[in-house]
Amino acid sequence: MSAAELHNNEMIHGYLNDLRRYLSRLAPHETQEVIREIESHLFDVLDQQAANGQAADVAEILRGFGDARQLAALYVAHIEEGAPPPRGFRAIQSVKKSVTASLYFAMAVFGFSMAFGLLFIAGAKFLLPESVGVWSTPHGDSIVVGFVSVPPMATPEVMGWWIVPVATLLAVGVAWLTRKVLLVLKQHM
């Protein structure tokens, strides 16, 4: 290879490397496709110039392609126009997805344990009727709901056996609501 050919090859590879760098927003296989096509064009023109006995003028051919950064910008323009993102952008989507997944499971755990807890209270009333109930403090500034080992002294229990159907209904309601929310979340996963 002559010194002139070596110089031409260096110019071409320098240009293609610049272009490759500026095309980094495209998927790797798309970048490779662009580089391959332009490389094929450049060497085709050089071959034709040689076949016609012309001196190879790489600078002139590269001028037709323009500045590597501007050429790359034309290839990348569709990304700014809202076309589907190239493969490299999947990472962002999967981060979003895993957030939704953890939200989904947190919602499931929270909702179903609430429902289970209410059912447990309803069932426990039969086993330990004295320890399960709703107590209101005498001045009405706080209430105690649920399952206690020592019932609060001097406070009347307000619900009696009504706690069984009320807690059961609430449990069913919470479970149903949780399921509805999970269905909506699932559509966005």
Binding site: E37, H41, I61, G64, F65, L71, L74
Partner: peptide, 15 residues
Amino acid sequence: ITEGTLYPLLDRLKR
């Protein structure tokens, strides 16, 4: 037209 206009346009037509 120039090379720098043709090739990106072909890419767009292909997309």
